[in-house]
Write a protein that binds this DNA or RNA. Sequence first.
DNA 1: CCTTGAATTGAAGTGGACTTCAACTCGACC
DNA 2: GGTCGAGTTGAAGTCCACTTCAATTCAAGG
Lengths: 163, 163
Amino acid sequence: MQESLTIGQLAARSGVAPSALRYYERLGLIRADRTGGNQRRYARTELRRVAFIRVSQQVGVSLEEIREALDSLPASRTPTAADWAELSAAWRARLSEKIRLMTKLRDDLDGCIGCGCLSLQRCVLYNPDDKLSGEGPGARLMLPRPEPAASACGDCASAPAPA
Amino acid sequence: MQESLTIGQLAARSGVAPSALRYYERLGLIRADRTGGNQRRYARTELRRVAFIRVSQQVGVSLEEIREALDSLPASRTPTAADWAELSAAWRARLSEKIRLMTKLRDDLDGCIGCGCLSLQRCVLYNPDDKLSGEGPGARLMLPRPEPAASACGDCASAPAPA
DNA sequence: CCTTGAATTGAAGTGGACTTCAACTCGACC
DNA sequence: GGTCGAGTTGAAGTCCACTTCAATTCAAGG
């Protein structure tokens, strides 16, 4: 079993394209040693990092946030199982919270569908405090804060629940 | 109570910026009538559409997919509560599936943390069939399919669970 | 009628996460 | 020692979901 991996090997084992791995390196999420001929050689432990990155992305965490989390690992020594466990515990909480919000969203959706309403302030779906997941891409500088804008929902007066 | 809303009013009531509403219209997600002077006037029912769009986005659905879903609403008549209920039922299923995957992810993470491993093929976290959420932005044309790449995980041999 | 805040357009810019390209060098095997 | 796939770089391109800008027109109140 080799000590280090080429970028191609890491890519194959992690399912992440080489170009993405270079990109991660530029952002400081992973690191690599270099051969005499300037080629990257990855320690096997980098596999864990890449795995952590992908798992975190699945949950909607940005690379910047992931970088910050990874920065909490000890730089001086190879991270131990305990180090990883600590890091992952925080992520677990994050996941749980996301699950909670999504479950709430689903249940609220159920409630709102009863009246066919799905209108904004009324239905809790729009609760700006309980924001789920990333705010999405794009340059979002426009509104300082959408404001609660509380007002009666005029769209619920219609039909009751269909059979 | 007014029959129709200006773009500013719709924006205020939905918490979506006017520019975003125009963008949605370009993509065919919502529609507006025009005044003599070419200004948009939205029927109140558009509020439901916007609500649906935002809720769906929270769950990680792309605007293109949302458009397809909205296209299933009857174009000839104003959608009834039943129409919306049908549409939302499909979304509910989607949500439930997402919740299921996320819960699995969390539990797998727990399992993997025990050994500090979190390495790829071994830990189920990486299961490419159970893909959670969107694939993220960016031009992704590179790998036709990452392939299972099944191979033994050489990173689990280390420490047992920390106290 | 005049003002003033809201609306219009198309084109261009933004941010995140990558990918693609071109020109070049490494390095493992025959 | 030659070949050829794998690796290197920086710059530029891409996709999504918007935002920002500038120039201009609307529309409601005084």
